[in-house]
Amino acid sequence: MLKSSVAALVLCAALPASLQPAAAEGRSYNGTWAVQLVTDSGLCDSRYTVSLAINDGDVRVASAGEGGAMVSGRIGQDGNVGLTVRHGSASGAASGRLQANAGSGTWSVSSLCSGRWTAQRRSTRVAQAD
C-alpha cells in the first residue's frame, strides 16, 4: 500500500504550487504533457511516467487512472512551475521550468525519495475531465 501511495505521489509530482499568476499567463503551455520522473535517491521506484493537463496555467492529472492523487499548481508566464501533490497523508512537491514543448526540474516526496523530471508536450488540446 505504501509503495502505491508513493508511486501516485511521484507520478503527479512531476510538474510543480506557490506561484500565483493570472490564468492567461500560463496559456501558452495549454495541452497534454507526458512527464517522466527518475528517482535519484530514496525508496521510490526508479522511473515513472504520468500524463498531466495544463489549462490556462492550472495543472491537473489528465486521467483519473493515475492513482487518485490531488494535484494543485500553476505555471507562470515565464514557464516556472510549482506543484503540490497529496495522496492520503503523504505529500510531494516539484519545481522546474517549461518551454514551448519541453521542460525539466526536480521533485521530492516528503523524506521518502527525490529525483528529476522531464516533460514533453503531446498535444495543444486540453484533455476533458473524466
Rank of each mutant, 00 (worst) to 15 (best):
L2Y: 14
K3Y: 11
S5P: 03
V6G: 10
A8V: 15
A8G: 12
A8T: 12
A8F: 05
L9K: 14
L11K: 15
C12N: 15
A13I: 13
A13H: 11
L15P: 07
L15N: 07
P16Y: 10
S18P: 09
Q20W: 07
A22L: 13
A22I: 09
A24D: 14
A24W: 12
A24S: 15
G26E: 08
G26Y: 08
R27G: 14
R27P: 07
S28P: 08
Y29F: 15
G31P: 08
G31L: 09
V35W: 00
V35G: 06
Q36G: 09
Q36T: 15
V38T: 15
V38I: 10
T39V: 02
T39R: 03
L43D: 07
C44D: 00
C44Q: 01
D45Q: 12
S46K: 09
T49H: 06
T49R: 10
V50S: 09
S51Y: 12
L52M: 08
A53Y: 00
I54Q: 04
N55D: 13
N55K: 09
N55M: 05
G57F: 10
D58K: 13
V59M: 11
R60D: 05
V61I: 11
S63G: 08
A64P: 14
E66Y: 07
A69V: 06
M70V: 12
M70G: 04
V71N: 05
V71E: 04
V71H: 06
G73S: 04
R74V: 05
G76M: 06
Q77G: 04
Q77N: 04
D78T: 11
G79K: 05
G79W: 03
G79N: 03
G79P: 03
N80F: 05
V81D: 01
G82A: 07
L83H: 05
L83G: 15
V85G: 05
R86G: 09
R86S: 13
H87T: 06
S89E: 13
S91R: 12
A93V: 09
A93L: 06
S95M: 08
G96Y: 04
G96F: 05
L98F: 01
L98T: 01
Q99I: 05
N101L: 07
A102Y: 02
S104A: 11
S104N: 06
S104T: 05
T106N: 11
W107R: 01
S108P: 01
S108H: 09
S111C: 06
C113Q: 00
S114Q: 06
G115L: 01
R116H: 13
R116F: 01
W117A: 08
Q120G: 11
R122V: 12
S123L: 01
S123A: 08
T124I: 13
T124Q: 13
R125M: 09
R125L: 12
V126T: 10
A127C: 04
A127V: 14
